[in-house]
Design a protein around this nucleic acid. Structure first.
Lengths: 341, 341
DNA sequence: GTGGTTGTTGCAACCGATTGCAAAAGCGTC
DNA sequence: GACGCTTTTGCAATCGGTTGCAACAACCAC
């Protein structure tokens, strides 16, 4: 059976329909000039033969492939499964195809750039809060439209970005902890090299009252992951450091930190409060119910894809930074009211 | 700056190196006949111009694109993030490129097939335990090499499959519960339509002693997810059904079921035992520590990609089923020894 | 019937590579 | 220096489409 069926070509359809190859091509090109009669015959022939045009071949002459590089280095953070889900659906709904790139030591930025150029992708989405803007610039410098999701926010960006303003998010966290009456707070960020962590830390410390800030310890988990959060908090406990509430790098770190606290008989939120960032599905699991700042994922993804579509039209459009507000999900890991309330 | 750089072509390299286009092509074709002198000059020219060959163009004449469709409908099960991570890395290490397809109501099997043909993919990986073999057959019928990962195991498969034998896994679960001295057991599977659930259920019931089997209730969560597991177990509890141990559809369902039990003041494993399937990272989180049957993920992925590579060489090779053994991860959700031990 | 307009069609060149074939070059031997 | 053999090279056709251009047909108005 499976005699690797040869692909049906334009030419065969043309012969069967008794028209020229151009006529067939035009039938499948929206907006081209074809008479009803010709179109009908072509469509019948194509149908009968099971013809579908080769994107490779058409891409060769038109220069468009509808291929979008989806680049990430966060394949261990459960939040990113939701990210990939949203991106693939949204791209698909626009008739764009995600070519997935998993960055690692074995496959770095240069490799990614080289390979995405080889495939003549129409654009690139970088989905990462840890990669620096310079990473995305490499793509735009090579003439590829690129939008960086979850990137560091900047008023005058040199690459297109979409995401929350992490500095503002840090401030919101500080305000929240103060409003809830926590006097002793700490910061447990993600990797020190991550732009998102640096920004959240800056905003957080900035918005704390001076007296509180002076005594606010700052730690960093070496990864945006449960295990890193657990290890970091276990280490903090072992050092005898104790705070009434922690602002953690993201949900995965938060959940790890919570587990470490509970493992040493501290209860959350009675003894220690925790607030995270992301609002991933797992954060809402019964038994976890993390208080966290949700990133409006679908809105971000829609904006990324929309912006990318614009750039594909006009590649020289100046870089723009699109910003969304994080939304507080009031879970069960922060107490509701001030003690003195 | 970003004047969408025009792509550097073979021709330009040829002109700069002062050789014919064939010579350039041969330089980049492993095993072709080129003199050292020519190769050197071509490489210099290519380097200077920043040339990288267009996969589209070469794919057009060679018929190979190195594109692999990675098709799944499990974008909500955290285990699949690990699956995607492993597949993308493994494909990349072989110089193959994953074109990700997210199946849904909006984008179904026919759409997937049509689009993967348009892109002339060299092969397809179906990663799903819920899709039926017929789904994958559609690809092989169209002449595309396809390997179905986590598929239903069959001795005489009509499509290439790799995964654990779910019937055997069900038996192992039954044996395990018996060995641990659980007399009253229940089955809480995934969606009834999922091949994996049907097989695990069959094996499980089959291996139970007749007396136990007769009293073994069978339930189904309507999804392989935490929420579905939670809801199903909550429902079971509400109906007043109570068992000393449950074999659950997968890890996500198990963790949900555990949360539901704990929410109604049953402790795991003291009051009720739970064993799952998959061995995803989250199952090992402190505070969860699920007892579960691990799928040897990297081994499965390696086997899938290796098999796919073989099929790309010889598309008419008869379908083969490659099977791996699930491995017990002895967590903290089953008691260790029989009461009467 | 003539002239102008609009819409449809096919020819042929082109997109950026690969590859069979034959000519040319390189080399060793007598 | 001539001969035969192997290696290297370029020509030109090909992969499956798109598209500018010119030819042509159809239609309308005068």
């Amino acid at each position: 059976m499976a005699l690797a069926k040869k692909r049906v070509t334009l030419k065969e359809v043309a012969e069967r329909a008794g028209v020229s190859r151009s006529a067939v091509s035009r039938t499948f090109t929206p907006g081209a000039s074809v008479s009803d009669e010709t179109r009908r015959r072509v469509e019948n022939a194509a149908e009968a033969l099971g013809y579908s045009p080769s994107v490779l071949a058409s891409g060769l002459s038109t220069g468009r492939t509808k291929l979008i590089g989806l680049v990430s280095n966060n394949f261990r953070n459960p939040f990113y499964l939701e990210v990939f889900d949203a991106f693939t659906r949204t791209l698909q709904s626009r008739d764009l195809r995600p070519l997935l790139v998993n960055l690692s030591e074995q496959f770095d930025a240069d490799d990614a750039l080289a390979m995405l150029r080889q495939y003549s992708v129409d654009g690139v989405v970088v989905a990462s809060s840890t990669l620096p803007p310079a990473f995305s610039s490499a793509f735009s410098d090579a003439g590829l439209p690129v939008v960086h999701a979850f990137a560091r926010h900047s008023e005058i960006p040199d690459v297109n970005t979409v995401g929350i303003d992490n500095v503002a998010c840090g401030r919101m966290a500080a305000d929240l902890l103060m409003a809830r009456g926590y006097g002793q707070v700490g910061f447990l960020g993600g990797p020190q090299t991550a732009a998102s962590t640096a920004d959240r830390q800056a905003g957080f410390l900035d918005a704390l009252p001076a007296g509180v800030r002076a005594k606010c310890p700052v730690y960093h988990a070496n990864d945006y992951s449960f295990q890193a959060g657990y290890a970091a908090m276990a280490d903090i406990i072992a050092r005898g450091v104790s705070r009434r509430a922690w602002f953690c790098g993201d949900d995965a770190i938060s959940i790890g930190a919570k587990a470490a606290l509970e493992a040493s008989a501290k209860s959350v939120p009675q003894d220690v409060g925790i607030v995270g960032v992301n609002g991933m599905d797992i954060a809402a699991w019964q038994g976890i119910e993390l208080t966290t700042f949700r990133q409006p994922l679908q809105a971000i993804v829609d904006a990324v894809v929309e912006r990318l579509a614009q750039l594909m039209e006009d590649p020289d459009d100046a870089p723009r930074a699109i910003r969304f507000e994080p939304q507080l999900i009031d879970g069960a890991t922060l107490r509701q009211r001030p003690k003195n309330g």
